[in-house]
């Protein structure tokens, strides 16, 4: 464990807490993409297959359970909660995310970390997470105004993977000494997808204006 990875995990956890807070306190999921939440449930389920077979630490087990639990809870709120589901902007959440699932699965079959079921699925989760934010970013571009909690959620979600990139650089020089192309390139793509969001988010924060993405 290093400071970059710990900061990354805490930022990721915070993003999920902010989203759960928004949904529970405002009883609304306006501006949130259900498709991105579905993709994240898939990312966690395919990445943490070794949850019961490989023990790393209490922290590792705990965080995996929290990530799976909270992402399923958010999915449930948006899909089935009688009040929250009314606030889901279904017509704006129009990204064809099934294409992302199929594309990433084919990519994982072609370029897996290793040709075993768990490693192909692990690679799938790495590829899928890199593009999982796309439905959410498309939805934000269509939303007229983005509320603070939603903006903070997306910002923290993007920031966590940027911290993971630092974690990988640190691990490269201190312990692994090998290039891990799949997570590194996926992580770079994932962080790059947030680039323009980061720009407008920081602008709105500096100018104390409402966050607005150009259509």
């Amino acid at each position: 464990m290093n400071v970059f990875r710990l900061a990354g995990d805490m930022t990721h956890l915070l993003s999920i807490v902010v989203l759960l807070l928004k949904i529970r306190t405002t009883k609304s999921c306006a501006g949130i993409s259900l498709k991105t939440q579905e993709l994240y449930v898939l990312v966690f389920l395919t990445r943490y297959l070794d949850l019961f077979t490989r023990y790393f630490s209490v922290y590792n087990v705990l965080m995996k359970l929290i990530f799976i639990g909270t992402s399923v809870a958010i999915f449930w709120y948006m899909r089935y909660h009688k009040v929250v589901k009314q606030t889901y902007s279904k017509d704006l959440d129009s990204f064809r995310h099934y294409h992302l699932i199929l594309g990433c699965f084919l990519m994982a079959l072609l370029i897996p970390f290793d040709f075993s079921v768990t490693e192909v699925l692990w690679t799938f989760s790495i590829y899928l997470e890199a593009v999982a934010i796309l439905p959410q970013l498309v939805l934000l571009q269509k939303s007229r105004n983005i509320d603070n909690l939603t903006g903070n959620y997306v910002f923290l979600l993007g920031a966590y993977r940027a911290l993971y990139l630092l974690n990988w650089i640190y691990r490269f020089f201190t312990e692994i000494h090998k290039i891990r192309w799949i997570p590194w390139i996926s992580g770079l793509v994932q962080t790059a997808l947030y680039a323009d969001f980061f720009y407008y988010y920081i602008q709105s924060w500096r100018k104390h204006e409402e966050l607005k993405l150009p259509a």
């Binding site: 990875r5 995990d9 070794d50 490989r54 590792n60 995996k64 290793d114 075993s116 490693e119 990988w168």
Partner: peptide, 10 residues
């Protein structure tokens, strides 16, 4: 098969 040394990450 090369060990996946990033498996201890989240």
């Amino acid at each position: 098969s090369t060990p996946n040394d990033l498996k201890d990450e989240l």
